[in-house]
Design a protein around this nucleic acid. Sequence first.
DNA 1: TTGTACGCGTTATCAA
DNA 2: TTGATAACGCGTACAA
Lengths: 340, 340
Amino acid sequence: MSVTIKQISEISGVSRGTVDRVLHGRGRVSPEKEALVRRVAEQLGYKPNLAGKALAARKKSYTIGVLLTAEGVSFFDEVIRGVRQAAGELADYGITVILRTIKGYNSAVQLREMEALRHQVNALILNPINEPEIVAEINALAEDGLPVITLNTDVEESRRLCYIGPDYQKSGEAACGMMGLLLAGRGKIGILTGSVKILGHNQRIAGVRGVIRERLPGLFVGDLDETGDDDIRAYAAASRMLRNHPDLDGLILVAAGSYGVCRAVLELPQERRPKIVAMDCVPTTVEMLRRGVIQATICQQPFTQGYQAVQQAFRYLVQGESPPEERIFMETEIRIRETV
Amino acid sequence: MSVTIKQISEISGVSRGTVDRVLHGRGRVSPEKEALVRRVAEQLGYKPNLAGKALAARKKSYTIGVLLTAEGVSFFDEVIRGVRQAAGELADYGITVILRTIKGYNSAVQLREMEALRHQVNALILNPINEPEIVAEINALAEDGLPVITLNTDVEESRRLCYIGPDYQKSGEAACGMMGLLLAGRGKIGILTGSVKILGHNQRIAGVRGVIRERLPGLFVGDLDETGDDDIRAYAAASRMLRNHPDLDGLILVAAGSYGVCRAVLELPQERRPKIVAMDCVPTTVEMLRRGVIQATICQQPFTQGYQAVQQAFRYLVQGESPPEERIFMETEIRIRETV
DNA sequence: TTGTACGCGTTATCAA
DNA sequence: TTGATAACGCGTACAA
């Protein structure tokens, strides 16, 4: 059984209050006692008891804000489910979670919501739009003592507490490795990305190209286009690509829009359809896996992303523990028809 | 914030002790008060606070026994890591975990250890050997009020609290689906199982055959043999199979022994080697994935198996909650070279 | 049958 | 600067 504050106080002959002040660095303790208590705590290997901490924290009742560009984006459904799950589990610990969703990727809108949440919450979780004003706002909040966690997408050079989300490069590598297996290592592939301006998408493409360079020289990238994460644009881009490259053996989709791509591919006769590796596991992708249009999809635990983000905020607020890593990456999962 | 016993007692005008007796069905309460308290608790949606429960439980200090046939079986390394992780996290809640490992699958040995642990622990987790005397012992323990959780392998007709482990049928389906993708739906495959007497292995084979029947008629099973979960026997069996069927396109390994199989396959010239789909992610399998001998492996979260088993035992003991399902299945994960 | 009081470990407040 | 004390929610022993 582990050591308690009470035991430390008994052994070092001071009161529990004094031990508490030392351990929490609240000051107002004489240097001798401070040193004594520290030594005893160190030697006994004191680790605060979570149940006790949680119970005491109930009096304080923290609020965690979650701000997501989730409206109309079905990928985020699972993320939100994870957020809700964590919120439910932590209600016992006096944690309230406020969830706000916004539509589209307008940084002004996001900025406004951040400002609105600022004074209501003790921690903020968001998927930041990659613009300077958002980074500046994150830093301002952090400066203010409000911990910020970036979820699903990261921004560089910010003072966020940590990032929780996909390892984009690795998911690109997995997609390429899978394509290599589907094509037995040889063939011409096309890449469809969301936007060449989005960091995560570019990292995925870098992952694809890296694997081709290192160990799949029989594959080569014949074309690349943007879908804007939109099924209509994706359909147009894929149609064009298939017309210009009738000999395409595979398509790697590193962003959303897979349904549009599939619709374009379905217009080809069965025997001329390229193999498709997609990203994420939204309902339309599941349908296309079932129909055999998509062969595999790379997932990055959307539920866990939301769940972990809230849990990390809780740990920071209640238990005073910083995240173990600056970036917490999800596992890269490959799903096929039989495992969706 | 959620409802507490104290609030219920205040509202219904009885003491906290009475509320406790009603909620825990300890009897010695007048029918009227009982009904009243129940109604109030129901209406307010009472859910006991976990932190409070945990803190109170610390006085009792439960012990959880874990008994695994893990000696010399590297698959269990991760399971044990999961057990240890949970043990560490639950130390704060007054939980002690005793881990015993045994060598081989001798039911007499397992029985002896079960008897030895019986009086030391408040819950028992084990991977049971599928023999009548083990089933009888599990039932005897359960009769005695000692909750038993089966881990990784289940036994039928037993009074275990729940099963936590792989969905064997599904992992077989995933292996077959993957093989279908590797062979573009056509080819002759061989199956190597551990033993035709082991339920889980047979369920995996059933999964493979099911997928072939339902949607991959171009695949057919040309041969099947046993490895005894042993690399030496696996090598011999695979060598024989490859000799008898030089036209084999794929090998599905539904049990251990993959290293032995790979050694046999490596004796063939590169272009004649069959594709291999294996199970689990032990170090030798990782090596063979890296060398391109194995194309994919199906994993069933060994870490989570161990972690969850201990967590479920904790929930049952401390929080009085039975598992949500009688069988808790792990996710079926496909791993390739890029994602191990 | 019912109520009261204490302890689990932590935090916060108040008095000295 | 220090120590004593109450509170968080739950479980339980003990007294009434």
